[in-house]
Amino acid sequence: MASRGIPVDTGALMTAVLEGILYGFSLLMFMGTVWSLTYRQHVQNINRPIAVVAILLLLLSTAHIVMSIIRVEDGLVKYCDTYPGGPVAFFADVSQETYVIKHPLYVLQTLLADGVVIYRCHVVCQSVRVIILPSMLWCSVAITGIHAVYSVSQSGSTTSIFTQELATWVMAFFVSTIATNVLSSGLLAYRIWAIERNVATIRASTKGTMMPIVRVLVDAAVLYSVALFITLICFLCSNNGEYVMVDMVMPIISIAFYMVLIRIAINRNRNRRCLSTVGTIAETEQGDLQEYPMKPLQVHISRFTRSDSTSAYEMGNERQPSGRRSPPWASEK
């Protein structure tokens, strides 16, 4: 099957540049994630599983971009004049070691990111039945991804990624990961929205709302899904842009993961500051009460009665002091 689109050597150079830009952005977001996980936190209170996942995503992205740079250097410099067919034939060869190594890294990155989304869905929904279908799709991602990588590693130098024996497994891999991401993220966002809606009916204030987290979850899912859809469309059209998109998806996965973590940490720190402010106000008011203790009050209760015969108001249980003259308005008419 003939490929279309940009030349493969131009696509390889474009891939290295675009992936490098996105990788730099993901590196900055990783620093923000580390700050959000450790800000005013004791070592024993740090969420270690999330920290490990964030570090693994960074390591996989770093290894992938290193292999991309090595592949570009090999095709355009090292083997530019010695490889039969030149750089175009070199980058079209899917049996190259640098090309084969990049795809297991991409599959691991995908499995790790999708697994985290499914785990979050399980934690929020508190139900195993909810994640049965996403877990089956995750297993499909693993099976199709491993088989696609194995098929590429066993292919010859003249084999194209768009041939029928490779295209079937690659297409199944993309469809499975898109379905896993959309379903898991959709269930997670819907569950948080439903909880927020139920709480809002009995809450007078909206300062503790979780809707910003829902919006970030949706944005991250849309960002990842759009990148995968474009990759799938390029692959179905046998367009060489698929090579570019696959490499760009690697840092996009990390960016989508980091942006959710940072938003959750910001929301958590904001709630903590609100609680700290309320506690400070309460302590101040308690100190004021201790400094100015309340004294017992003397209450005098008077009874007003109306006499029809005199048409005057008299105060009950009250005696005029002897030797003193009553005021004019108290005298009878």
Rank of each mutant, 00 (worst) to 15 (best):
F162I: 04
V222P: 01
V299W: 01
A221M: 07
Y258T: 01
F25A: 15
L137C: 12
G115V: 06
S26A: 14
M29S: 07
A16L: 14
L236G: 09
L236Q: 05
V66R: 04
G156W: 03
I255F: 06
R324P: 00
S153D: 08
A189T: 07
Q96I: 00
S157T: 09
I253K: 02
T206P: 01
L275T: 15
I178A: 06
I230C: 05
R325G: 01
M250E: 06
P84R: 03
L59A: 15
I69M: 09
L105C: 14
I252D: 03
R272L: 15
F162Y: 12
R263T: 09
S61T: 13
G5L: 05
C139A: 12
N198R: 10
M248F: 02
P296H: 00
M171C: 08
Q298F: 09
Y190V: 07
Y99H: 15
S254H: 02
Q44T: 14
Y258V: 02
E97P: 04
M248K: 02
R325N: 07
T38D: 01
R40G: 14
I50D: 10
F173M: 04
T82R: 03
L236A: 11
R203F: 07
I262F: 04
V117Q: 09
L297G: 04
M14K: 06
T180D: 07
M259Q: 09
I161V: 15
L236I: 12
V218D: 01
V182I: 10
F91C: 00
P212L: 08
A12L: 06
G5K: 02
S322D: 12
N45K: 15
A189G: 07
L60F: 15
V123C: 09
T144F: 12
L228N: 04
R319K: 12
V52F: 14
I50T: 15
P134Q: 00
V100R: 05
I266P: 00
I281N: 10
V141S: 05
K102L: 13
G75S: 02
S140Y: 01
R4S: 14
A12W: 02
V278A: 15
A194L: 08
T110M: 14
V141C: 15
Q290L: 10
V34K: 01
N271G: 13
R270C: 09
A189L: 08
R319A: 11
N47A: 14
S157D: 03
P84W: 00
M211K: 05
C139E: 00
V152K: 11
L108Q: 13
L58G: 02
P293S: 00
E291L: 14
P49W: 13
M211F: 08
R71W: 14
R4V: 13
L236K: 01
T231N: 11
F30S: 04
T38M: 12
L217H: 01
L261D: 01
I266Q: 09
F30Y: 13
L297R: 10
N317R: 12
A204E: 10
E73M: 12
V199Q: 08
S254Q: 04
I21V: 15
S151A: 10
F173N: 07
T82A: 03
L59Q: 05
W138L: 13
S157Q: 05
T144C: 11
V149G: 14
S326K: 13
N269W: 03
V246C: 06
N240L: 06
T180S: 11
P327R: 12
M248D: 06
L13T: 10
I131T: 13
P7A: 11
I266G: 06
K78F: 01
E165R: 11
L166A: 05
P87D: 08
L217P: 00
P251H: 04
L137P: 13
